[in-house]
Simulated scan of single mutants.
Amino acid sequence: MAQLRADIRAFIAEHAPKAEDAALRANCWAVGDAAFSRALGQAGYIGMIWPRQYGGHERHPLERYVVLEELLAAGAPVGMHWIADRQTGALLLRYGTEEQRQRFLPRMAAGELYACIGMSEPNSGSDLASVRARAVREGDGWRISGQKTWTTNAHNAQLMIALVRTEEGSERQNGLTQFLIEMDQPGVEVRPIIDLTGGHDFNEVFLDDVYVPDTMRVGEAGAGWSQVTAELSLERSGPERYLSSYALLTELVRLAGSNPAPRLAELIGEITARLMTIRQMSMSTAAKLAAGEDPVLEAAVVKDLGNGFEQWMPRAVQAVVDADLSGRDDFARVLSVLLQVSPSFSLRGGTREILRSIIARGLGLR
């Protein structure tokens, strides 16, 4: 693993674009660079655990975990390929058809095909069982209409996996199906959602009578709920759930070099201890996923604790360091950005209330 860390660090140093604004290193998994994603794919750092027949490299899951950690810790712009590598590819390997795998996975592994997630809707955020987007059967395909929101990277993605209702009159978890929707299809419209910092990660996606052939259905019709819960375990348990604020820790350590205040050293120690604890839990969940398990409960715990940690950190730093948030130095910019965007961390992939309901059910408490 030590050699792999050295290799990916050297790759990042050579290929990662140098951000003019250090604040871009915060929440970097939502920031993309097409050339960097292609370089990663050519070097074999995307689709690392996928079968070679689909463009993958059949590496050990913990090797992939090491690469993800190093990319996030360095603030590399991985947003273009992130979702495809993290969950879309895994979903197709588990539930997709051979035709779908052959068609899409090699381009994903090459860092050339990007995906987005069509789950949340305006009135169905984390409560995915209440989605209202619908698909109606038409000949050898389906007509899909509805709206998806908070869709990360939809403005760059070529492909969406959408969760829609395919059984008329069905409610909650019943009658849901997943489809692959090509984003250049007639009837697909993407509108930007600009965040407080002026960033454009999120989007609204409108689906107006979009025709999707049945060959683009993922898994069995009506089995979407079980598939999407397995997919969410991939989304909720990765290192991005505790490393989105890592850039602030590195800036804090640099600051401590010229400011030996005891409280600053204590805070760095507390941050590091919390981070390493969540990291161990995340790696354990990754091992279960690699073994073919569906650690829904463990993934929910990792995301809840990771989001809490990432939202606590910038506030804790602000309480200890008297920083001019209007300043242009790296520390001030990173802190300012994270204070603005960190409230959204507990919304992505499921709100804290939903996660704690999952945890309570898993523990037999409700």
Rank of each mutant, 00 (worst) to 15 (best):
T229L: 07
T229R: 09
A230E: 08
L232F: 08
S233Y: 01
L234N: 03
L234S: 03
R236T: 03
E240Y: 03
Y242G: 03
L243K: 07
S244M: 13
Y246C: 06
L249R: 14
E251I: 11
L252D: 08
V253E: 14
R254N: 12
L255Q: 12
L255M: 08
A256W: 05
R263F: 03
R263G: 05
G269Y: 13
E270W: 07
I271S: 06
T272L: 09
R274P: 00
R279G: 03
R279W: 02
Q280K: 13
M281K: 13
S282A: 15
S282Y: 00
M283Q: 09
M283F: 01
A287T: 04
K288Q: 10
K288R: 11
A290V: 01
A291M: 01
A291I: 00
E293A: 14
E298P: 01
E298H: 06
A299V: 04
D304H: 13
G306W: 08
N307P: 00
N307A: 15
G308C: 08
F309E: 04
Q311L: 11
Q311C: 15
W312H: 13
M313D: 08
R315K: 15
R315D: 09
A316E: 12
A316F: 08
V317R: 05
V320Y: 06
V320S: 06
V321Y: 10
D322P: 00
D322V: 08
L325N: 09
L325V: 10
R328S: 12
D330G: 05
A332T: 09
L335T: 11
S336G: 13
V337Q: 11
L339G: 13
L339V: 11
Q340R: 15
V341C: 11
F345M: 11
F345V: 11
S346W: 02
L347K: 04
R348T: 05
R352I: 04
L355Y: 00
R356G: 04
R356K: 12
I358Y: 01
I359E: 05
I359M: 11
